[in-house]
Design a protein around this nucleic acid. Structure first.
Length: 486
DNA sequence: ATGTTC
C-alpha cells in the first residue's frame, strides 16, 4: 500500500458522523471512520480507507481500527489514525507514530487584548522570526548543547528545559505527561540521531510547523473557557512543532529493525510500511524506549521555543512577565504511542494506543488530566490552516468509550505539496493573507505555497464531526493575526 | 515531517 491509489472498499454508514469498514479478508476487527457527508469524498480520494483496513490486520488490535475526520493517506498507517494493541499480545509500529515523533501543539494565553498588539504585529512577527530559527535544517547557535545535556533532554524532556532556565515549573503542570515520557533510554539512540538533534533543539523546522499569534474570536463554552484563561478578544499563541531531525532519524533507524523483527516473529504484513514487533519483544521494547527519547526531545523543543516567544513579547511590547501573563494552557502530542488502560467489555485492559495525527482527549476526573483541569477535562488543541482558524476543544467520557480517548488533530491536507505549489504559481500567498489581516513570514521559498489555506480541508468541518460525535467538545475558536513558518 | 531522493 505504498501507492496513493483510491480503494474500492464499501463503507457502511452508521450515523451522520461514523462509517464502518466491515471486517473482511484478513482484518481482525472492523474499521470505523469518523467523517461526514461533506468530508467523506476527501477521505475516499486516496487510499486512507484501505490503510484503515490494513491496520485492522495487525496482531493484537483491540476494538476497531479508527480514522478521524482529518484523516488522509500516510506512511503505512493513515495520518489521523488511532489503533490500540493489547499490551501483552499486540504489536508496536513506527508507522503508527509517524516520522515526526511527538509532533504536537501547545497553546498559551495572555493578558493582551487584540487591539493592544494591532500596531505592533509587524514588529512582533519580525522579532519572533529572528528569535526562533525556522526552516529545513534550522539550528540554534546560542544553545551549545553538550552531548551529556542532550542525553538529559532525551530522559527528562520539558523538565530539562525548565531546569536549564527555559520557562517555569508551572509550565510542566500544563503539558501532556508533564512533558516527560517514562521509559526513555538514551543508550538506544544512534550516533546519527544525536548528531542531528544537538544543534536543532529550540528550532521550528519546516512544513506545517509554525508559531501563530491569534485571538479568541468566538466562545462556545464560557465556563470552560474561563477556567482555561480564555475570553473573547484575548491574545493567544500557538506553537506547532516536533522532534526535528532527531525524531526523523529514530524513525528511520527503527523501520529497518522492525522490518527484520516482523519476519523474525512471523507477522504477516499487508504493507511493508506497517512493519512492527510484538510489544513485549526486545525489538518492540527498544522502539518504545527510543520513541520516548524523541518524544521528550519534542517536549523540550516546544518548551524552549515558548521561552523565546515570551522573551520576544516582553521586549517588543516592553512588558514584564507579570503584566503579560503568557501562561501555558496545555501542550498535546499528536504523533505518539502510549500505554493506557481502558474498560473493554467490562474488563480493565492495558493497551498501547498509537495516535498518528490524532490527539488525546481525556475527560474530567481522569488521573492523567492536570489537577487544575480535573473538573473540565483535558484541553484539546486543533490548529487549522494559516488563513482560517484554530479550535480549543475539551476531552469527554465518550472518547474513552469510543475512540481510546482520542480525537482529530487538525484540518488535514487536501492537496499534495506538489499540487499546492502548482496551484499557487504566479500568486503571492503572503499578500493574499495580508489582505485578510494576517501577517506571515516564512523561511522556505515554497513553504507558503505548500501550506496555503486551500491545500487544507476546512478545519471547521473536521471539528464539527468530532463535536457532534461527542469525542470532544468545542470551547473556543481562535483567529490568526500573525504567523511564522519554516 | 525530513541535512525535502544519504
Amino acid at each position: 500500500m505504498s501507492e496513493k491509489k483510491q480503494s474500492d472498499i464499501q463503507l457502511e454508514k452508521i450515523d451522520d458522523n461514523r462509517w464502518r469498514v466491515p471486517q473482511h479478508g484478513n482484518m481482525r476487527v472492523d474499521g470505523i471512520v469518523y467523517t461526514s457527508e461533506t468530508l467523506l469524498p476527501h477521505l475516499q480520494a486516496d487510499a486512507t480507507v484501505q490503510q484503515v483496513a490494513n491496520v485492522a490486520q495487525l496482531p493484537g488490535i483491540v476494538g476497531q481500527s479508527l480514522a478521524m475526520p482529518d484523516a488522509h493517506w500516510g506512511y503505512g498507517f493513515p495520518i489521523g489514525g488511532v489503533a490500540a494493541f493489547d499490551a501483552d499480545e499486540g504489536v508496536i509500529s513506527p508507522g503508527g507514530v509517524g516520522y515526526d515523533i511527538n509532533c504536537g501543539v501547545r497553546l498559551m494565553r495572555s493578558n493582551l487584548r487584540r487591539n493592544d498588539i494591532e500596531d505592533s504585529m509587524k514588529e512582533l512577527v519580525t522579532a519572533l522570526f529572528k528569535n526562533i530559527p525556522s526552516g529545513v535544517g534550522s539550528e540554534r547557535s546560542d544553545l551549545r548543547l553538550t552531548e551529556q545535556n542532550e542525553r538529559k533532554v532525551l530522559l527528562e524532556g520539558a523538565q530539562w528545559a525548565v531546569s536549564a532556565g527555559f520557562g517555569t515549573e508551572n509550565d510542566i503542570e500544563h503539558i501532556e505527561e508533564r512533558g516527560c515520557l517514562t521509559g526513555a533510554n538514551p543508550d538506544i539512540i544512534s550516533k546519527e540521531a544525536y548528531k542531528r538533534g544537538r544543534p536543532q533543539l529550540g528550532t521550528l523546522g519546516s512544513g506545517n510547523h509554525f508559531v501563530e499569534i491569534g485571538y479568541v474570536e468566538e466562545v462556545y463554552n464560557p465556563a470552560i473557557a474561563s477556567i482555561l484563561g480564555l475570553e473573547e478578544g484575548g491574545v493567544t499563541v500557538i506553537v506547532h512543532t516536533g522532534s526535528r531531525g532527531l525524531g526523523y532519524q529514530v524513525c528511520d533507524d527503527f523501520l529497518q529493525e522492525m522490518l527484520a523483527a516482523s519476519r523474525k516473529y512471523g507477522i504477516e504484513l499487508p504493507d511493508k510500511q506497517l512493519c512492527c514487533a510484538p510489544i513485549t519483544s526486545p525489538e518492540g521494547q527498544r522502539y518504545y524506549s527510543a520513541m520516548a527519547c524523541a518524544a521528550n526531545y519534542a517536549f523540550a523543543n516546544r518548551q524552549i521555543i515558548t521561552h523565546w516567544i515570551r522573551e520576544t513579547f516582553e521586549r517588543v511590547l516592553n512588558m514584564s512577565p507579570r503584566e503579560l501573563q503568557m501562561n501555558l494552557i496545555y501542550d498535546v502530542a499528536h504523533n505518539i504511542a502510549k500505554f493506557e488502560t481502558y474498560l473493554i467489555d467490562g474488563k480493565e485492559r492495558k493497551v498501547c494506543v498509537h495516535r498518528k495525527g490524532a490527539t488525546r482527549a481525556f475527560p474530567a476526573k481522569h488521573p492523567a488530566v492536570p489537577s487544575v483541569y480535573q473538573g473540565i477535562g483535558q484541553p484539546v488543541l486543533i490548529p487549522g490552516d494559516m488563513g482560517r482558524c484554530s479550535y480549543v476543544l475539551i476531552g469527554t467520557d465518550q472518547a474513552m468509550s469510543d475512540t481510546f480517548g482520542s480525537t482529530c488533530h487538525g484540518a488535514g491536507r487536501m492537496l499534495s505539496r506538489t499540487a499546492a505549489i502548482k496551484r499557487a504559481k504566479g500568486r503571492a500567498i503572503w499578500r493574499e493573507l495580508a489582505d485578510q489581516g494576517i501577517i506571515v513570514k516564512s523561511e522556505g521559498r515554497e513553504t507558503l505555497a505548500e501550506e496555503m489555506p486551500e491545500a487544507y480541508k476546512n478545519v471547521a468541518d473536521v471539528v464539527e464531526v468530532v463535536h457532534n460525535a461527542g469525542i470532544s467538545r468545542k470551547v473556543v475558536k481562535l483567529r490568526p493575526l500573525g504567523v511564522i513558518k519554516g
